[in-house]
Amino acid sequence: MIDYGFKNKIALITGGSRGIGLSIAESLAKQGAHIIICSRSKENLESASKALKKHNVEVLTIKVDALKQDAADFIVSEIKKRWDGVDILINNVGGGGRWGNERVEITNDSVWSEVFQKNALIAALLTSKLIPHMLKRKWGRVITISSIYGKEGGGRPWFAMAKSAEVALMKSLSLTNYLVRSGITFNTVAPGGIYIKGAGFEEELTKNPIKFKKMIEDEYPLGRMGTPEEVANVVTFLCSEQASLVNGSQITVDGGQTKSF
């Protein structure tokens, strides 16, 4: 196994109790990083914590709802009860791609604000609140999990808007000299269709397997969807010293699903 130099570093993964977030947490824990995960589900946090502790690292779980206005402040206050800050921040919490209605004009106004809060705003607030520790340590990694719909058209507009805002956030920070010359890098990972048990794609497969298989055949060049572990592999590399020149990038992990260059 390649040594990415994470031993005793502190990593926060929001939405880290299942799916892509948990896979990232497990990958970093295998490399020796101490892990903080956030979720609104106590049950998922407990299950994830047990799995992560098998890697002989410290694990802190924080039960919080990203839609709450004070979520970022609460997360930071909980972290500071144990550590001064974090070395690695993975802004993974998000969602809303299936919220609202296909008809934009009859979708409730709250959908726009809630999807933006759960994706872009919580990422922006956490990043700004956790940067000071990275500046002090003169090292840090901030990676935001966006979506292919933050890269090109498609999906529901409130989701695409929030996800493209995440890309803009990382790019803007990556051009901020005093931050990046202090050893902090900022990047975005944009997954395509990722099959996660208990999530929307599993529901679609169960409801209409023939239609689902045709969709895979027509839209996915590899003939399959991605896995959370495949996204985690890319994120883990971006967190490493070996990726020190990768800054301000949006890396698509979609098996060729997108059509833009």
Rank of each mutant, 00 (worst) to 15 (best):
V57L: 02
K129S: 13
V111R: 03
D73Y: 03
G97N: 11
L126D: 09
W99Q: 13
L130G: 03
V86Q: 02
V93S: 11
D65L: 08
K80S: 10
I88Y: 05
I79H: 07
T107P: 01
L125N: 14
K68N: 15
N101L: 08
G95E: 10
R137Q: 15
D84L: 13
E58H: 12
V93M: 07
I106Q: 08
E58W: 08
W83L: 04
V59R: 01
V86F: 04
I62W: 04
K68S: 13
R137S: 15
N92C: 10
G96P: 09
L130K: 02
G96Y: 02
K68V: 03
F74P: 00
A124D: 04
E102H: 11
N91E: 07
Q117T: 11
R82I: 12
V93P: 00
D73R: 09
I90R: 04
W83H: 11
E105A: 00
I88A: 06
E105V: 00
H133C: 07
S128H: 15
M134R: 02
V86C: 05
A72V: 06
D65W: 08
V57T: 01
V76Y: 05
T127G: 10
K63T: 14
L135G: 03
K129M: 13
L135F: 08
R82S: 10
G85E: 05
T61P: 01
L125T: 09
G85S: 11
V64A: 08
V115D: 07
L126Q: 06
F116A: 12
F116M: 14
V59D: 01
G96E: 11
N101M: 09
L135D: 05
I79R: 05
I75P: 00
A66T: 12
E58G: 02
D65P: 10
S110G: 00
A123M: 09
A71W: 01
L125M: 15
D65V: 09
V93T: 13
K81A: 09
K118L: 15
N91F: 04
I88Q: 05
E114M: 12
H133W: 11
L89M: 09
I75M: 06
D73C: 04
K63E: 15
L135P: 01
F116W: 08
S113I: 06
D87A: 06
K68P: 00
S113A: 11
E105Q: 01
V104R: 01
A66H: 11
K136H: 13
L135E: 13
V93C: 05
L135Y: 06
K136Q: 15
F116I: 11
K63G: 07
I90E: 05
V104T: 14
E78N: 12
T107D: 07
W83R: 04
K63F: 02
I122P: 05
N119V: 06
R82Y: 12
G97F: 03
M134H: 03
T61S: 13
I62P: 01
E114P: 00
I88M: 06
N108T: 03
T127Y: 12
I88C: 08
L126T: 03
L60G: 00
E114Y: 01
A120M: 09
L125D: 14
V86A: 05
W83Y: 15
D70H: 11
V115M: 07
R82E: 10
R98Y: 11
D87L: 03
W112G: 05
D109M: 07
R137F: 00
L60F: 06
K81F: 07
D109E: 13
E102N: 15
A120W: 02
S128D: 13
K63V: 13
F116D: 04
E102A: 12
